[in-house]
Design a protein around this nucleic acid. Structure first.
Lengths: 168, 168
DNA sequence: TATTTACTTAACACAGTGTCAATTGACAGG
DNA sequence: CCTGTCAATTGACACTGTGTTAAGTAAATA
């Protein structure tokens, strides 16, 4: 809070005149970030793809483009969610939205009868959702030093290998 | 620290007579936990498997049996690693060991010429390592409410789908 | 001119980690 | 029995960080 106040050029206490708590400030900051770069809409764009396979790829591509933009905020959310219930809830809601995108892509695939029989649509959604988590992106790009393109390509390849069976 | 002292039936200050800091106590606790249930050795057992495919499956099974035992400690490590460099290092070292196990399984697969051409052994290792992370286990078992067996089966299936190609 | 608004400084409460000094009780050896 | 040592005790303190409160100020607004 001190650092933020310093950056903003106001006193530490003045921050509390605008936001009641650190958690509230963090949540307001995400809303602001969403406003200035219209982020969540980008993920919906993938829904225009017609086949399930395409949809899976476009969704992964969209997510992978979106991730670097929200990574800073995400890290703050992840760090605070253990100590603040409101932050945890806001983060869960956001990740739940993202899961819906996964579910939509998997369901499109199932509708095309191209979903692997090894998984139910729910299981496939859970796996895809987990695979695309911010932590995993962080691990691959930061710890394993993957480039953005490597990440995107590998996630698409992986989703294909696991979930898509050849058309009859 | 207060809670731990209370549980141990000593004063809060007495804990500092044995461990210089919260981080040191946490690290000592893991060593103790390893001693009493000989945990890391379990992961090495998978190395007796002969073929790469078998090795992949036994390693995943071993890791999946090991995970619930260390989950409590792991959570403490993950929560502290942002604020304490010593904790972060200890955790990284441990995860690096686990990564070696992944690499061994992937390399055995590559040796058998059964590794998918979509990935280099390093890439496959990174992906497997990421896929088997504690966070992912937590997400699937806690958030998605998967059973232990479901988790194990899905991870094995996933590794097969992604990494193993049919023998010639 | 009077009021409102946004902000200031300065102080405080509270929780948590880590430190320090003085004290106590038990136990072992001479 | 006395003495030294060891482990633990109580009680105090320093420091960081969040959040609150009170009193005051400077500029815009009515």
């Amino acid at each position: 809070m001190s650092d933020i106040a310093k950056q903003a050029g106001v006193s530490r206490q003045a921050v509390y005149l605008h936001f009641n708590s650190r958690a509230e400030l963090l949540i307001a900051a995400t809303h602001h970030l969403d406003d200035i770069n219209g982020s969540p809409e980008r993920l919906i764009a993938s829904r225009i793809a017609t086949t399930g396979t395409e949809r899976l790829a476009t969704y992964i591509t969209a997510w992978s483009g979106y991730l670097p933009d929200i990574y800073g905020m995400a890290k703050a959310f992840l760090a605070m969610q253990d100590s603040d219930e409101a932050v945890a809830m806001a983060w869960r809601a956001r990740m739940q939205d993202m899961k819906e995108g996964c579910a939509a892509a998997i369901n499109a695939l199932a509708h095309d009868r191209r979903l692997s029989p090894h998984y139910t649509p729910d299981q496939a959604t859970d796996i895809l959702w987990t695979m695309l988590s911010v932590r995993n992106w962080e691990q691959l790009t930061v710890d394993c030093d993957w480039s953005h393109d490597q990440y995107t390509a590998a996630m698409i390849q992986m989703a294909r290998d696991m979930f898509v069976i050849d058309g009859a």
